[in-house]
Nucleic acid binder design. Structure first.
Lengths: 200, 200
DNA sequence: CAATATACATACCGGTCGGTATGTGTCAAG
DNA sequence: CTTGACACATACCGACCGGTATGTATATTG
């Protein structure tokens, strides 16, 4: 039996790194802050991760991606796509209202995408892969909706998926900058408006 | 007559700062790089700007805001709002295709919004003011459209404005991350789809 | 029981950061 | 002709950055 499980240490570093990156971005994130908040030493950090970049990639792969999948991708696998998206929007809105800081910090994935895409293709590709998975899941869901006579057959499922992902990112981003749940509500209303227009 | 006009120096600093911030963000931006690219000294920079923050604010106020106003706000002041937005989207798409790096760097305003909003309220308020001006211009344009029997009177102009601003930011952000003009086209198509659904 | 590998902690490193102190040439005002 | 304000340039500062070298306790293996 080990005195301390290394996987626990690794996870505590990942979680502290996620928080730091979520708050002040990857570039601004200080490894000193991270080891401090994780309650471990710098030696431990560099034992588990080759460098800051590898830590950042691991945060995306091992924390952000699974959570994103659980919240946004998996719900699209069954049922009426429009209803599912409405549920996602509703949960998101409730979370914004319940925890204003969550709104102000924005979407961890979109934050990283906008900050790092241009200068670090490793981040860009990882993040784009995640968005692509969501776009694909949405596309498949709307294809299903068309087959089930829930969605107008004249619509292009792929385009719809791309549009929803972009608009959702825009919604979270606008809320973050405005710090205003009224604005969030307005945008959400119009997104629902758009979704309704796709109904058969 | 002065040997060199101070306003020219100031402007060259602002332009170099804008480029640096656009490429690697405000936090990542190095004042050393900026003075180097501006072809001046650090003394000149700190003669014209109190600190890095003041320089960043000046970039928003004096470079980004006027350009944003010219490209997005002023076109909304006359004519059919839907046509105007289509023109903006068309220009944006052409620019993405013509200069891929422009697409990869993303929107300077949205980049700053996502990077700085949470930790610097000065940035957040400035940027939100600019977006608010666009939202208001869009709202007024759609009000006008309703009065001119171009837009369905059942629609809420304010909500439409908020939605378009959010979706546009999402569009640019998605393009930046995906580096794919096909995706840009898909999202643009659906945004136009949405706009058409507002027509009377 | 000795040897080795793992999982850290501590102390430290060169480099870059934002920012400052000080010197200097220019020019308008008195 | 002097003075002082302006518009810089140069040299430098402490703080913090990401990263490393080294030491050590523990667990595993032969």
């Amino acid at each position: 039996m080990t005195v301390k499980a290394p996987e626990e240490t690794r996870l505590s570093i990942l979680k502290a790194a996620f928080e730091e990156i979520h708050k002040i971005g990857f570039r601004g994130a200080s490894l000193n802050h991270i080891v401090e908040n994780a309650g471990i030493s710098k030696g431990a950090l560099f034992h588990h991760f080759a460098d800051k970049q590898a830590l950042g990639y691991a945060v995306v792969d091992e924390l952000i991606f699974p959570e994103f999948k659980r919240k946004f991708v998996e719900p699209m696998e069954t049922g009426n796509p429009i209803d599912r998206i409405k549920e996602i929007l509703h949960k998101q809105f409730e979370m914004c209202c319940g925890d204003p800081e969550m709104m102000e910090k924005g979407c961890p994935l979109n934050n990283l995408a906008q900050e790092m895409s241009f200068t670090d293709s490793g981040f860009r590709e990882r993040i784009n892969d995640i968005y692509e998975i969501w776009r694909h899941a949405l596309s498949k869901a709307f294809e299903r909706g068309i087959q089930n006579n829930q969605i107008k057959s004249t619509q292009n499922p792929e385009e719809i998926g791309a549009f929803i992902v972009a608009t959702f990112a825009g919604l979270i981003g606008a809320s973050k900058c405005a710090c205003d749940t009224d604005l969030t509500k307005q945008i959400t209303n119009q997104l629902i408006n758009y979704l309704e227009s796709l109904k058969l």
